[in-house]
Computed example of a mutant assay.
Amino acid sequence: MARNTREGTEATRLALISAARRLFVEQGYAETATPDIVAAAGVTRGALYHHFEDKKALFSAVVEQEAMAVASDIDRGAAPAAKPREALMSGASAYFAAMAVEGRARLMLLEAPAVLGVERTAEIDRDNAEDRLLEGVSDCLGAAASADEIRALANLLSAAFDRAVLEIERGGDPDLYKAAIARLIDGLIPRSR
């Protein structure tokens, strides 16, 4: 019986996250009310508050799930490469593909910093995909680069990737932005690598 209770508890939690994600994408965080979430999930209000302290905590769980999905998509989508620059570009392409999932850019790049704050949003990123970019930049720069230099460049590239995703979301040509990212990387990282 305990296993069924655990499975039911997890199913309820996942139903809440799924329903909340859909509503946050459709309506935005501010316009989504908790009664709408529980109705869409088919659970009681008590179930919501059993799993999450409040709507913000539920939103955080949605963003965390999205960040894990992005990291997983990058791991699956980035092709093995012989050269560090190629690996970094492959990872960038995988990131663009992962962020093309309906509503993901809005949730992670617009709503999350506004609702959770920049620091909490950065923490979620650090807990999920940031290490992949740091590793790629480190491989490209080589052993002579300091940890601070690697982190600074990774932060700047991450911001550029995010801005490109937002522009693509607004209707920009993905190939144009991929080419721009390649030029940016080539300008920052020695070609010999």
Rank of each mutant, 00 (worst) to 15 (best):
P84E: 11
E86C: 15
E86R: 15
A87F: 11
A87K: 08
L88T: 01
M89G: 05
G91R: 13
G91S: 13
A92H: 08
A92V: 10
A92F: 07
S93G: 13
F96W: 02
F96V: 05
A97R: 03
A98H: 00
A98L: 01
A98W: 00
A100M: 00
A100G: 03
V101W: 01
V101Q: 05
E102Q: 12
G103W: 03
R104S: 01
R104W: 00
A105S: 14
A105I: 05
R106N: 09
L107K: 01
L107Y: 03
M108F: 04
L109N: 07
L109I: 08
L110R: 13
L110F: 10
E111A: 07
A112R: 09
A112Y: 05
P113D: 00
P113R: 02
A114Y: 03
A114D: 12
A114T: 10
L116Q: 03
L116S: 00
L116R: 01
V118Y: 04
E119R: 02
R120P: 00
R120N: 06
T121Y: 02
T121L: 00
T121D: 02
E123W: 03
I124D: 04
I124G: 03
R126T: 08
R126L: 12
R126A: 15
D127Y: 06
N128H: 15
A129I: 11
E130N: 14
D131Y: 12
D131C: 07
R132P: 05
L133T: 01
E135C: 11
E135H: 04
G136L: 06
G136S: 04
G136N: 01
G136K: 02
V137W: 05
V137Y: 07
D139A: 15
D139F: 01
C140V: 02
C140Y: 00
L141C: 05
L141R: 10
A143D: 06
A144V: 12
A144H: 10
A144P: 04
A145Q: 10
S146I: 01
S146C: 05
S146R: 04
A147G: 14
A147E: 14
D148S: 11
D148R: 15
D148E: 14
D148L: 13
E149I: 10
R151F: 03
R151M: 07
R151W: 03
R151A: 15
A152P: 02
A152M: 14
L153K: 06
L153P: 09
A154Q: 09
A154I: 09
N155D: 12
N155F: 10
L156F: 10
L157F: 11
L157A: 09
S158A: 13
A159L: 15
A159V: 13
A159N: 10
A159I: 12
A160L: 14
F161N: 03
F161Y: 08
F161Q: 08
D162A: 15
D162L: 12
D162M: 13
R163F: 13
R163A: 14
A164S: 13
A164E: 04
V165N: 08
V165C: 14
V165Y: 04
V165W: 07
E167G: 06
E167I: 09
E167D: 13
I168G: 04
R170Q: 14
R170A: 15
R170E: 14
R170V: 12
G172T: 07
G172S: 12
P174E: 07
